[in-house]
Design a protein around this nucleic acid. Sequence first.
DNA 1: AGTTTAAGTTACTCATGGGTAACAATATAG
DNA 2: CTATATTGTTACCCATGAGTAACTTAAACT
Lengths: 226, 226
Amino acid sequence: MGNNIVVGYEISKIGKKIKKIKLTKPGLKSGLKREEKRQLKLDAILRHAAAAFMEKGYYKTSLDDIAQLHNVTKPTLYYYVKNKEDILIKCEDVASVRINGLLDQVTACAENGFVQLENFIRGYVEIITDDIIRCHIRHRGQREDRAARNASLKMHRGIEHRVREIIIKGMDDGSIRDCNSTIIAILLFDALNGISAWYRDEGQLNHEELVQQVLLLVTEGVKNKV
Amino acid sequence: MGNNIVVGYEISKIGKKIKKIKLTKPGLKSGLKREEKRQLKLDAILRHAAAAFMEKGYYKTSLDDIAQLHNVTKPTLYYYVKNKEDILIKCEDVASVRINGLLDQVTACAENGFVQLENFIRGYVEIITDDIIRCHIRHRGQREDRAARNASLKMHRGIEHRVREIIIKGMDDGSIRDCNSTIIAILLFDALNGISAWYRDEGQLNHEELVQQVLLLVTEGVKNKV
DNA sequence: AGTTTAAGTTACTCATGGGTAACAATATAG
DNA sequence: CTATATTGTTACCCATGAGTAACTTAAACT
């Protein structure tokens, strides 16, 4: 530990030209603060943008709108973000980390498949309260750029795949009935993602009741077993 | 039957000014053909537009794109449609009629609530194969115009309400277990509407299997009852 | 201190695309 | 066969909004 001097490269602001910059010792508080502040601001911008996108939609929200929410002018945004679409991409990154984190946590527990699935659902409903995640869910698939679109698709597939694995595990250990894991995983995500479009934490609907209803639906269905 | 002469009014082309037009006896083939042709063309335009919206999204699809799909020029569209948003509204009208029609059919049968719900699901999955309906599902809520947005919301609420009624009926007659009908109805719609985003009739996934999996999920859930 | 980098501003460009005006062709009715 | 609606076209206008260039202010390291 101590005073390790890291010298590296950083991709500069607007992309295009890549500028070589000697990074000074990040051990010093002031140095860290700089990067920290930048991260905080980026995060705030994402939050504002995500909120605006959720309220008015991506295309009806201008960069000026977002800038104003953040009390800066449009060009400033370009210091933190490559372009408008990049906002969605960055939101997706955040979402990817959080959802995969949840999956890590869930699959790490030595429970049977069904319980893991329950735990995932519980955690997911928690997560999709966050504006950035909601924004990602709503706008995934709108990527203009081919590469970005493919990356998005891939990451989405990955998550879906992990949930499918949980379901398969459940069928193996006997905790989940025989079913088409692909379809069930998709249906589950459709329902859960749908929640993110209408559920408000501040609303009158209690969070715990929502989770209960979802879990009951998934476990038992709605048919009355006399 | 016979030669009943209907004289009425028609809302003219571009809205704005409402022009009174005496309709000539529609018994004559030529008279009918005119209106018929117009309707057919409007329908074709909606179809083309809906398909394009589904593929590229509403905002990335220009009116020129739609016009081209129909082998006409942009201004011609304005003869059939008030403006871009009006396309969505007209799609919604089509969707409303079809979905409510399905509900009429389903609720007319003297079955218990659960069976009615099953029948609705079966019919709904059928319906959401249609591009116009898919377009409506995906773009409902994007209305720019306040009045249009409210109308859209109202119609959507209406449909959701009818499904809730079915669920309540099922709880009354004992065919559906006790649950929060509001939440369950919404979750059901989220899952079903989600299907419209990815399911292709031409795809490898068999329609009947999809319906089976959905119905099983709704009836039994996924937990294995040993 | 004084120089460098970060952070932000004002003032533009420029493509896109919705919508319209005015004109042209085609069909229908009388 | 001519007058009148009905369809359609070409050629525009113009608002909007993404993205950039060039310049200014604030912060930080030596």
